[in-house]
Design a protein around this nucleic acid. Structure first.
Lengths: 222, 222
DNA sequence: GCATAGTCGATTGTCGACAGTCGTCCGTCG
DNA sequence: CGACGGACGACTGTCGACAATCGACTATGC
């Protein structure tokens, strides 16, 4: 009848659905580190069978949000500041330097427009004090460029660390004294991208990502 | 009777078994890029049901060895030289710099002995021209140190890229004019580790991993 | 002859049931 | 009183069957 071709269509598999629900719950902090994840309970709550839940837990395990032990279940993991500084930030720099330089030649006007829209979204979120929206827009900005780079394995590695990057964005977002600065920084990054000078872009990314380091870590880096 | 408590015990889940078989087949090149992986066929060949096979394929997908498309199946992926140089090598450097510096204080005599044993294994494999054994020993050396660093997420990221690192080790191994040099380089690295000077170790790792770059890439890096 | 819609086989996505494993609790024995 | 061991409950690992989806092929109309 009125159902236009997508009646009960999942359009996204139940597994993906479960992954999203759980990832959201973990990165937002609603599920806390150490909490147990029991397959039957989850499947009941989500109105599905255990098979999709199991596969979802495996994926979250790969993403480092969950740890699981044979025959003994799964638990939620946290993201330490130490990991952010020592692993995630350097990996992001490696990954994004590569992705950004590849993306430079491929970004068309449409892409630039989308990036600009994300910056606008940031400004709006910042004004409203919507820290989660701000963090998600931040993720979206970086992910869009990685997607545009059309480097399959780069995107795959990004997907592996992205949930944890999101987790620390969200955790740290409320601490910003000036949320608008996030939007401003991305605007500057975008401006450099528009100009298209590779060296300048790489330099801008380095500085942009380094912002996430705590003062002490910055001192360590020199 | 004689069965000493581990009769039919899997001791490793069927899923892990399937993962290992397929990973081995892909990294060794027995399964070629583009080849299709059909769940029922695999489950029949491996004498198991589809559930473990499905979960194994998901894991290999996370590792970047396999790509899968909803309702349309999975296929084997390759590892390009471009990815090695632009992504895997830099990521390895980031990861291993961190892991090695963390491991330095934790390596006990037992660990050093194991590392030494791996170098001996390399020498033996090199003399026999056993290129796959040589590549696997190379992997084992680096992985042991990452394990000793006791950085959970570091290990998790390593597990994500390790299969592709193995793939390019195995692919490139036969091309070495002097297989023994691999053992020699690791011996030198191990010697520096024994001394325990962090800066020297980090420097040695950089150079060690950079070896995998083709001459052209090296020129690019300056 | 060509475009379009319907059908079919192959393959994946999901389900409910059962088997295997682990930690715990309780009773027994020294 | 503590160590040992077997039974129990909770949960994960695996299975075989069914539903949903896709691409290719075929038939139909123009």
């Amino acid at each position: 009848m009125t159902e236009l071709g997508l009646r009960r269509v999942p359009r996204q598999s139940r597994r993906d659905h479960v992954v999203e629900i759980l990832r959201e719950a973990i990165t937002s902090g609603r599920l806390k580190p150490g909490e147990r994840l029991i397959e039957v309970d989850l499947s009941r709550e989500l109105g599905t069978s255990r098979a999709p839940v199991r596969e979802a837990l495996r994926q979250l395990e790969q993403e480092g949000l969950v740890a699981s032990y044979p025959y003994r279940g799964s638990e939620v993991l946290g993201v330490s500041q130490d990991e952010v500084e020592q692993v995630l930030v350097p990996i992001r720099i490696t990954l994004e330097r590569f992705a950004f330089s590849r993306a430079l030649g491929r970004l068309d006007e449409d892409d630039i427009e989308k990036l600009q829209a994300i910056v606008v979204e940031m400004e709006e979120a910042a004004r409203l004090g919507a820290t989660e929206r701000l963090a998600d827009a931040d993720i979206a900005f970086h992910e869009l460029i990685i997607v545009c780079s059309e480097q399959r394995h780069c995107l795959q590695l990004w997907k592996t660390i992205q949930p944890r990057v999101r987790a620390y964005f969200r955790r740290d977002a409320p601490a910003h004294d000036d949320p608008l600065s996030v939007a401003r920084q991305h605007q500057e990054l975008l401006d450099v991208i528009k100009i298209g000078d590779e060296a300048a872009v790489l330099d801008a990314i380095d500085r942009h990502i380094h912002i996430h380091l705590a003062p002490k870590a910055l001192a360590d880096e020199g």
